[in-house]
Every structure is written in C-alpha cells, then in structure tokens.
Amino acid sequence: MNLIDAAFNRLKQEGRAAFIPFLTVGDPDLDTSVDLIAGLEQAGADILELGVPYSDPLADGPVIQRASERALLHHVTIESCFQVAGEARRRGVQIPFVLFTYYNPVLQVGLEKFMAAAAEHGISGLIIPDLPYEECSEVLELADKANIHLIPLVAPTSEGRIQAILEKARGFVYCVSSLGVTGVRSSFHEGIEAFIQSVKQATPLPVAVGFGISSHEQVERFSAICDGVVIGSAIVREVETQADRLLNESAKQDALLQICNFVSQLKGYKLT
C-alpha cells in the first residue's frame, strides 16, 4: 500500500487531520535537510512535502523563491533531492514523502527515469504545480505504474474543472486556500469553507488545504474542516531565520531545535 494511503487511513481512525510541513530541499544545505526531515517527523509531521529548488518558481512567493535561490547556490538538483529522501529513510524516517517540483526539471531527467528514481528513494507522492490535468496523462500513467500518487491542485477558480481534476486525482486533493502564490497571509479566499466542502463532497479521497497557512489557529481552523493541512512558507521562513546558525557546527543543534519547536507549536503540542 502507498504510504500516503496508510497515513490517511490511520489518521481517519484517530479522528484527526494530517499535519503536512513543507521544506525546500538543500536550504541551507543537503545535510541539514536530512536533519530537518528527521526533526519534523519528531515535531509531529504526518506527511512531508519536499520542495525541489527551481530557478523560475512561478507558483511561489518570495519566501520559497529565496529558499530556492539559496539551495541553487550550491547546485542542488532533483537527483540530490532523491539522495536526501533516501538518506532520511536510512536514518529511520517513516512518514510518507511528497515531492513538490516544477515540471521542467522532471522533463530533463526523463519521465521514466525520474519515476524509477523517485520510487527507489521512497517518494510516495508528487505535486507538479505547473502541470494542469490537460497536460498530465503521460506523467500520471508512469506514476501509477511506480505506485506514486500524482496529487492535483484545485484552486478557488477551478469551478467547472473540479470534476475533471478529481477524476485523475490520486492520494489526496490539494486545495489552494487563496488566489495567489505560496506565502504567509492573514486572510483566505472568501468562501474558502464552502469551496473545501464542495471538493470534499465530490471525491472519496482525503482533501488537504495549503497556501498561506502560518499559525496554530489557522491549522486548527482548517483541521476541523478537512483531512490535511500543508504549511510551507511559515516553516521555510523559520529555516531562513536560522540559516546561518544551521551552517555553524556549534549552533546547529540549537537551531534545529528552534525550528522543530516552532513546527510543533504550529501543530499544537510541545516537544518533550
């Protein structure tokens, strides 16, 4: 069984929503990413989104753009993201990994080679923000063969497209909370609850919400109405704040602890 399905089954029994943090891989460097992944599992992540740095991240706001730039400074590639995922597994991390990547890096690896490597390195799901359902058939077919879920985004503007998107959905459905790019925001799309409700009614799959969720209150609010909550920029911004200390051997453990504390507070419990 795909780890994502297993995670949602378990969470359903426990009666709670999935807490899904996001990290840009290679920010500030690859070794630290492995430490952060292990730390986020400890901090309560049920599923983890791993962002592949890209030169032209169209769907991302300034925080994740800067994280990409920091990672690309030392030439992080999609292959090195796979290595990080594999290394985290070897260290005993068990939660499912969802790779968040723009389409061009995938295309340059080659779709078949990419999917084989993703499966080999323990990737359970895939989000490609610039691949709408009209363009996704080849990727979907190969992902299905590799037992990797291609997770679609549904936006408040999707309207008449929702049914067609859901027909090709695997794993879970990612609802975009607002019109706009990723990034911390204080208000969400008007009618967000009704929007999430309409998506939930149209699919048997779990429905997660993301883009702009940055506080414990917001996590609580959305956990009550859907099956998963994704937190990206708020965590990446915390990593940015600690970036220099993460790269300094003597300060690294404390910096990791600070980030994990921040994340566990988002989720709503304190690290022991």
């Binding site: 923000p129 709408p132 009209e134 363009e135 408040p156 999707s158 008449g160 019109l179």
Partner: peptide, 20 residues
C-alpha cells in the same frame, strides 16, 4: 485545440490560471 504547434506549446501553468 490544445494549443500545440506540433509537440510545442501547450498550457503549463498553475491551476489557478487555467480557467482564466
């Protein structure tokens, strides 16, 4: 109709823009 010139072109954008 899919915006293809041979294999080139298409519509590779975030879902939010598709209806627009």
């Amino acid at each position: 109709e899919k915006g293809r010139f041979g294999s080139f072109g298409g519509r590779y954008v975030p879902e939010t823009l598709m209806n627009a």
